Computed example of a mutant assay.
Amino acid sequence: MDTDALRWFQQIADGVTMTEVSEIEFITQSGVSRALSRLEADVGTQLLRRTGRNLRMTSAGAAFKRHVDALLHQLDDGLAAVDQLIDPETGIVALASQLSLGTWLVPNLVGSFRRTHADVRFELQQVRDNQTTAVLQDTRLDLEITTVRPTDRTVTWHPLLTEPLWLAVPQEHELATRRHVRLSEVSREPFLMLRRPSLLRHQTEELCEQAGFEPAVAFEGEDIPTLRGFVTAGLGVAVVPALHLGSPEALTGVVHHLQITDAGAAREIGLGWSSERKTLPSAELFRQHIIDRSGAGDLPAVAPMF
């Protein structure tokens, strides 16, 4: 069914003349008349009847008009929603990130972006640091800030920064007076780790293996703040990402952190997106904003250890 014919029917039913419709829509009167005839053929009955020089709705036309009004109203709302979506200054960015990046990097990037693009909205999704990327699993996502380097060729990866891994120990621990540690020095300590298939868990186990021991896991948690909480309670030690300036965790001082000197004690943070889906303008703006800040070395620095 031709939406132009529906709009012309609506206008004439509201009192606009055929001549006025023709002038407004830049189409001949015969073109309008043919479109209305096709509409009546589609509906299966006469919708308009000529009374003198004017067209008036039939009973069927009056019944049909109520639904046409509702349909065109919804259609216009849908078109307006699409216009808003594809407008780079009023669109929506669907962004996924790991919980450990959501306290410092993501707020920093979104905040600096919205200072110049205040009407862009964000749909944020937190994901675990599993060994698969979220943009492969959820086609609604535009971008993902992650420590998972994708192996699938349909995902583009742009490295942003390298984040050191630290060892978190209780404040009263015998190592709490030091700034550096080798993992072999804590081989007999109970370890607090994320549940599998966490990438950080896998990396921690690899670092311990390289240091010559298998860690004794005393507790498995779902997120890094929980691990730090158990460290605070004196239940073990944990390999955790470095704290960054601007993170609320960097202000607490509830645990002591030591720099791990073992080779490979760091994780790479990057930006991922599907190379098979066209990025909407607002997401493209945000992607370029992140890449520009990374290229300029303008990302939050590591906080002093304590």
Rank of each mutant, 00 (worst) to 15 (best):
T28W: 01
R56S: 14
V127E: 12
V110C: 08
V43R: 07
G264L: 05
W166S: 12
G31A: 10
E206D: 13
R188L: 10
S97D: 08
I291E: 09
R149S: 07
L55D: 03
T132P: 00
E25A: 15
V148W: 00
Q259T: 12
V106F: 02
V82W: 01
E214C: 09
P241C: 02
A118L: 05
V32S: 06
V110G: 08
F9I: 05
Q210F: 05
T90V: 03
S247E: 05
H244K: 10
V155G: 05
T154V: 06
T156C: 09
L36R: 12
W8A: 08
G91V: 00
R293Y: 00
I145L: 15
A242C: 01
Q259V: 08
P300W: 06
E249V: 06
P197S: 11
L55I: 00
V21R: 03
I145M: 08
L72P: 02
R195S: 13
A62K: 09
L95V: 07
L47C: 04
L251M: 09
L36P: 07
M193W: 00
H202V: 04
W157P: 03
A5L: 02
A60R: 07
E174L: 11
T261C: 02
V110S: 06
E209A: 14
Q98R: 11
F26W: 06
D152S: 13
E205T: 01
H256I: 03
E185S: 12
L160N: 05
T103P: 01
T17V: 03
P159Q: 07
V93I: 08
G15N: 03
E268W: 00
E276M: 11
T103Q: 14
T103H: 14
S187V: 00
D142S: 06
